[in-house]
């Protein structure tokens, strides 16, 4: 049987760079200062028509490069495609960061002489390998909302519903509907033409 693959998608026509996803994530998982599992970036800033914002975190790649390079094999990919890692196995070597196209893995400095601690990244609110919803899991990985049947907090909080999460087919179905019903270009809505052009 084919399982659904969970994916994030940020609709750049809707993202308004409010940073709500990033703040919601940090609050929900009680992340330490300096760690941001999710971040909003703006590309082509200041160039009219080309500027857009999008929200990035771990993209839960199908062929996750982080999982391929880890020397201690601390990564595992769930049947639903969520890429998770075992923080108690992780040695904080940094290889996953070098392999990652998105710069998702982060390393809080801890231990002797400020060595890199265990890696931290987005879990798609699915916790880790420890007992589901245990105190230890919450402490190490944050909330396990997936186990509770809830949407990951970033997408749930997104005010414009730019950030979507779910099985890849449902997500692309939503995007397809949005694209096909959209007027030409977000900066030049159809109604403006109607209102002002033929005067």
């Amino acid at each position: 049987m084919e399982y659904a693959r969970m994916k994030f998608y940020c609709d750049e026509h809707r993202c308004i760079e409010c940073d709500g996803c990033s703040v919601a994530c940090a609050e929900a998982h009680e992340l330490p200062v300096g760690i941001a599992r999710r971040k909003v970036i703006t590309i082509n800033e200041g160039i009219p028509g080309k500027e857009f914002s999008t929200s990035i975190a771990c993209m839960h790649c199908t062929d996750a490069p982080c999982e391929q390079v880890c020397p201690v094999d601390c990564f595992y990919i769930r049947e639903d495609g969520i890429v998770l890692h075992d923080k108690e196995k992780c040695i904080g070597c940094g290889y996953c960061l070098y392999a990652c196209p998105f710069g998702a893995p982060q390393f809080p400095r801890e231990g002797i002489f400020g060595a890199k601690g265990a890696m931290d990244k987005c879990t798609m609110c699915a916790g880790g390998p420890l007992e589901t919803n245990s105190e230890k899991e919450r402490h190490l990985y944050g909330q396990n909302r997936i186990a509770e049947g809830k949407v990951p907090v970033c997408a749930a909080m997104c005010s414009t519903k730019a950030l979507l999460v779910g099985d890849s087919e449902s997500v692309s179905a939503i995007i397809r509907t949005r694209v096909s019903s959209r007027a030409k270009g977000a900066s030049n809505p159809l109604v403006w033409d109607k209102a002002y052009k033929n005067q």
Binding site: P71, D73, I91, G111, F113, A115
Partner: peptide, 23 residues
Amino acid sequence: VIVFGDFFGGGMFVRFCKNLHGL
């Protein structure tokens, strides 16, 4: 030990070796 970290199961021991490697 770091290269064959998966053989040693990761965690405390390999992390300790990584720190010694740097120290």
